[in-house]
């Protein structure tokens, strides 16, 4: 059974005039008989499956619908049409550190972030010191996050997010973080997570990494699947234009 199953997924954003309306604008437009709703199609008829142990890369230019697709997989955005099924625990590596609060300590943030990802916080609490140690911020864990440098925050977020081996891994451009030393360390951990049996969906502009890590690739163009197949072939075609 496929771990990730996407069937004929469509996603249409309804854009009301500007991104955000005010009641006054809405009223004016309604009176003038032109409450304009623009439909913006972000994804059209996208289908694919990912099995356990498979790494599928999503390629495409900016605005092709890659991030929207990941959000649908993460369960954050419901598709307008079609179905998206994911069986298993998801680790969304999408802009790490969502929910970090500057006034809470490093340790408190690790626990809170883990709880958001539905991990059992009893187990997390026992691992907080180790997570901080791995991120190289072990002696800062009891200080508020606002006293951390941005690099330290990124490392702590990465260390927390990758602490547990998930069944489904969604990756949006986070293959490595931090300075040169940490990049190597985090890259290695990421590679290990990707290659140890999870179903992986990977969005990246780093074609070398895609060739190295992915089995299959899907090339998105303006919300359509332009090409889908063996990773090297799709990357070749994508790079050719």
């Amino acid at each position: 059974m496929a771990v990730v199953e996407i069937n004929n997924v469509n996603l249409t954003y309804r854009v009301l005039m500007n991104r955000r309306g005010s009641i006054r604008d809405l009223f004016k437009e309604a009176v003038a008989g032109r409450a304009r709703i623009v439909n913006y199609v972000a994804l059209q008829d996208v289908s694919f499956t990912v099995d356990a142990g498979e790494v599928v890369a999503i390629l495409g230019r900016n605005g092709a619908g890659k991030s929207t697709l990941l959000k649908i997989l993460a369960g954050v955005l419901p598709p307008t049409k079609g179905t998206a099924k994911v069986n298993g625990s998801i680790a969304p590596m999408i802009e790490l550190g969502a929910g970090f609060h500057p006034e809470m300590t490093g340790a408190e943030n690790v626990v809170f972030y883990s709880a958001l990802m539905m991990r059992d916080i009893k187990k997390v609490k026992a691992r907080v010191a180790e997570i901080g140690e791995w991120a190289g911020v072990g002696d800062h864990m009891n200080f508020p996050l606002r006293t951390f440098s941005s690099g330290m925050v990124a490392r702590l977020a990465f260390s927390t997010a990758t602490d547990v081996q998930p069944e489904v891994l969604l990756i949006d451009e986070v293959l490595a973080v931090g300075d040169a030393d940490f990049k190597e360390k985090s890259g290695a951990r990421m590679t290990q997570l990707i290659t140890s049996g999870a179903a992986v969906v990977l969005v990246s502009h780093d074609m070398a990494a895609v060739r190295r890590l992915a089995n299959r690739a899907i090339w998105l163009e303006n919300g359509h699947v332009r090409m889908s197949g063996e990773a090297n072939e799709v990357v070749d075609a994508y790079e050719a234009g």
Partner: peptide
């Protein structure tokens, strides 16, 4: 105010 979380992690 938790939009940042809600658009990334399913809760």
């Amino acid at each position: 105010s938790n939009g940042g979380v809600l658009t990334k992690i399913y809760v």
